[in-house]
Structures are given as C-alpha cells and as structure tokens.
Design a protein around this nucleic acid. Structure first.
Lengths: 106, 106
DNA sequence: TAGCTATTTAGCTAATACGCTAAACAACAA
DNA sequence: TTGTTGTTTAGCGTATTAGCTAAATAGCTA
C-alpha cells in the first residue's frame, strides 16, 4: 500500500502507467516520452517495479516493461473502499472486479 | 491531481481521510489518533486542505475538519479510468457513482 | 484584564527524493 | 577482439518533506 501510493506520487510515474495500458514498452521507448535523462527514468522504473506496479522482462539487450494492473487496483481501490464505507482493511475484493467496468459483460 | 496524489503519499494523511469518513472531527481529536506532535499534524492538515481533500470549518476555538470525498473520487477514479481504458482525462463520471458498492450495509 | 485551551506558525535538523553527468554492464554485430 | 546500442549504477548537488520544540495567535471564561 504504502509503497504503491509512494510510487504514484510522481507525475512521470503515473504517466508511465498510463502509457503501459496499451501494452508492453521498452525502457527506451518509455524514456523517449519524457524530458528527463534515461538514468532518471531508470530510477522511476525501479520504483514502479519495487512497488509491483510494473514487470520487467529481459529480452536480450532490451527490457520490456508491462503494467501489473492488479496490484494497482488492489491498493487504490482498497483504499477508496475504506474511505467510502470503512469496511475491511484488507481490500480483498478490490483486486479483480472493482466494479462492472462500463456496460461490460454485466 | 498532482496535489491530490501528493497528499495521498503519506500514510498518516490517508488515515486521516479514513477517520473522517464517519463525520467531522476536530484537529485535536484527529491528532490524538497519531503518535506525532500536533504541529506535525497541523502540517498534514494543511496539505490535505490545500489539495481540497478536507474542509476546515472554524467553530470558535476549535476547527472541524470534514472529508471532501468528491475531490478524492475525481482525482483517483479519474486516474484509474485512464490507466484502465485510456478514455477521458476528465474523470467526470467517476465523482459520484463509482460503482454499486458491494453487498455492503444491505 | 488574566488565564486557559486549541491550533498554527517559526525555525531548526535530518532524511528522502529528483535530477544530472560519467561510468559501468549486458547483449549483440562485425 | 572492437564497436554499438540499451540500460543501469555510482556519485553528487539541490529541493522537498517530515519531524521536533518553542512561541504566537484565536477564542473562550472568569
């Protein structure tokens, strides 16, 4: 929880997560989207990774980062549920099906 | 957005929001829940207030803080929607009815 | 007025975070 | 081997944050 919200506190890191919603991207591709140096971006990736928000798959020479949405859902939705209704502190129900996500499936 | 996620990055501030879900509390009552000094808590309140997450009503001598849930909803759910589907950046639909809230209460 | 309670402001220290450049490491190509 | 590309690590400077104590401010009561 703590580490997730910490990771979310920086706008670049939040934007990285948004970029990754479309699918995997390499560290270099991601870095090209931001006006900071690659070492700085590497630090952001490390923070996101250690929070469990992204996964890094080493593909010989390049690293493919992908979004780990379930960790984000569990932490954020768990907190929101707690603030809204004060129920469980464990957020167990929030991970997979936060809510029927639109007109989705139902 | 930025300022909201910044405010959410500290565990004490998140817990303050949770405490306030039941209704208003004075600065002193809130401070009594945490093992830090009152001036330190005052700083946390200031940050939450400037993010719009809480409102402070001055009641002669004491200050009643209340949760401003809609700001929290808009920022957090807006971000979640953006990460999930990449749609609007304004989160208009997220503020009021996030989802049918469990089997809770009922 | 003085005195009491509640809360914030001022001023400080220590820790953390963010950014940079330079260097190192890893994998591949020639 | 050397070179090239992609990425991270090391080291540093500065800004921000979190905590503290002490003092100031605001409102009440006597």
């Amino acid at each position: 929880m703590n580490v997730v919200f910490d990771a979310l506190s920086h706008p670049i890191r939040r934007e990285v997560l948004e970029l990754l919603k479309r699918g995997g991207m390499t560290a270099g591709e991601l870095a090209d989207h931001f006006p900071v140096s690659k070492p700085t971006m590497s630090g952001h990736f490390a923070k996101l990774k250690s929070a469990g928000l992204i996964l890094g798959e080493n593909r010989g020479g390049t690293i493919l980062y992908t979004l780990n949405l379930s960790v984000l859902e569990e932490a954020v939705m768990g907190f929101m549920n707690r603030v809204r209704t004060g129920q469980s502190t464990s957020a167990q129900s929030a991970s997979a099906k936060t809510c029927p996500p639109k007109g989705e499936t139902a």
